[in-house]
C-alpha cells in the first residue's frame, strides 16, 4: 500500500532520484570533522523550529518584551525548554559553524572548484553573527539593553559615515523601542530570508560538486 503510494508519487514527482542524489551520493573517504556542516545544519533547523514557536508568545515592545519572555519561561508548558533550546542552540550554531569553517580552511576545501561554496559559507557565518547580535536584545533585560548599547557603538567607528550608520542601526539617536522592533524584524524576517537563500546555494553546491577529498601526505 505504502509502496504503491510512493511509487505513484515517484512516477509523477521523481522524488526518488532527488533522495538518492542527496542521501545516497558517493563521498570520498573522510573523517568525522566532515560532519560539522551537518551538525551546523541541525542547529539551524533547531533555531528555526524553536524560534517560530517563541514568536507565538513573544511581543517585541518595551512594555511586553521582558514580561512575555518571563511568561514563556515560567508559565507556558515546556516554554523553559523551547527558550532554552533557542538560547543554547544559538551558541551551538556559532561554535559549530566556526569549527566547520576551520575544518574547511585547514583541509583546503575552499579551493577550486568550491570557491562559491566557500563565499556563501562566509556570508552564512556573518548571517549567523547577525542572528546572535539581534537576538541578544530581544529578551529586553539589563544585559540585553547594555550589550546592545555597547555593541552598536562598534559601527560608529566606521570612517565618515559612522554616526549616520549608528543612527540607522538604532533607528534614531539612541537605543529605543524602535531599536527593539527593527532588531526583531531583522531577526525573524531579513536574516532568515538571507539564511535560506545562502543555505540553499551552499547545500546545492555541496551536493552537486561533491565534497573534497582529504589532502594526501607526500610519500
Amino acid at each position: 500500500m505504502v509502496v504503491k503510494l510512493t511509487d505513484w508519487l515517484d512516477e509523477r514527482v521523481g522524488w526518488r532520484s532527488i533522495w538518492d542524489n542527496v542521501f545516497k551520493r558517493k563521498i570520498p573517504y573522510v573523517n568525522w570533522l566532515y560532519t560539522l556542516g551537518s551538525a551546523t545544519l541541525l542547529a539551524v533547523i533547531n533555531q528555526g523550529v524553536t524560534g517560530i514557536l517563541l514568536t507565538i508568545y513573544y511581543v517585541p515592545t518595551p512594555d511586553h518584551a521582558y514580561d512575555s519572555v518571563q511568561y514563556i519561561t515560567t508559565q507556558v508548558p515546556a516554554g523553559w525548554m523551547i527558550r532554552g533550546l533557542h538560547h543554547w542552540g544559538a551558541s551551538a550554531m556559532v561554535v559549530l559553524s566556526f569549527l566547520h569553517m576551520l575544518r574547511v580552511i585547514f583541509l583546503g576545501s575552499y579551493k577550486y572548484p568550491r570557491e562559491v561554496t566557500w563565499f556563501t559559507g562566509v556570508f552564512l557565518f556573518l548571517t549567523t553573527i547577525g542572528f546572535g547580535f539581534t537576538g541578544y536584545l530581544l529578551p529586553w533585560d539589563q544585559k540585553a539593553y547594555w550589550a546592545t548599547t555597547v555593541g552598536t557603538q562598534i559601527v560608529a567607528v566606521t570612517p565618515l559615515v559612522g554616526n549616520w550608520l549608528l543612527r540607522v542601526v538604532l533607528g534614531g539617536a539612541e537605543l529605543s523601542p524602535l531599536t527593539l522592533t527593527r532588531f526583531y524584524g531583522t531577526h525573524v524576517w531579513i536574516l532568515p530570508a538571507a539564511l535560506l537563500l545562502l543555505l540553499g546555494i551552499h547545500l546545492y553546491l555541496v551536493i552537486s560538486i561533491g565534497i573534497s577529498e582529504m589532502p594526501k601526505q607526500r610519500e
Binding site: T50, L53, I56, Q75, V76, P77, A78, G79, M81, L85
Partner: peptide, 13 residues
C-alpha cells in the same frame, strides 16, 4: 523529544 513539548507549548495556555 522536540515535537511533544512543542505541542504542549502551543496548546497549554
Amino acid at each position: 523529544g522536540l515535537g511533544i513539548p512543542a505541542i504542549s507549548y502551543l496548546i497549554g495556555p
